Amino acid sequence: MKKIFIFLTVAFALQSCKNEKQKSTESKNTENQKTQPSKTSVNQSSQSIEGKKNPNDFIPEGYVINKYGGGISAEGWDEIKGDLNKDGLEDVVLIIKGTDKNKIIQDEDRGALDRNRRGIIVLLNKGNYYELASKNYNCFSSENEDGGAYFAPELNVSIEKGSLHINYGHGRYGNWGYTFRYQNGDMELIGYDSYSSNGPVPQYEVSINFLTKKKLTKDNLNKNDDGDNYEVKYKDTWETIKLNKLMKLSEIKDFDELELN
Rank of each mutant, 00 (worst) to 15 (best):
K2M: 04
K3Q: 04
L8K: 03
S16W: 04
C17G: 10
K18P: 06
E20A: 13
K21Y: 14
K28L: 15
K28W: 01
N32Q: 13
Q33R: 06
Q33N: 11
T35S: 03
P37H: 00
S48L: 14
I49W: 03
P55A: 00
F58Y: 11
I59L: 03
G62E: 05
K67C: 10
A74C: 09
E75D: 11
D78L: 08
G82A: 12
D83A: 04
L84P: 07
L84T: 09
N85T: 13
E90T: 02
D100S: 08
K103M: 14
R110S: 06
G111T: 07
A112K: 13
L113V: 04
R115Y: 02
R118Y: 02
R118L: 13
N128L: 04
E131L: 13
S134A: 15
N136S: 05
Y137D: 15
S141F: 01
G147E: 13
G147P: 10
Y150A: 15
F151T: 13
A152D: 05
N156I: 01
L164P: 08
H165D: 14
I166W: 00
H170A: 05
G171H: 10
Q183F: 00
N198V: 13
G199A: 09
Q203A: 09
V206C: 08
N209Q: 07
T212Q: 04
T217Y: 00
N222H: 09
N229K: 14
Y234A: 09
Y234R: 12
D236I: 01
D236Y: 00
L243V: 14
L260T: 14
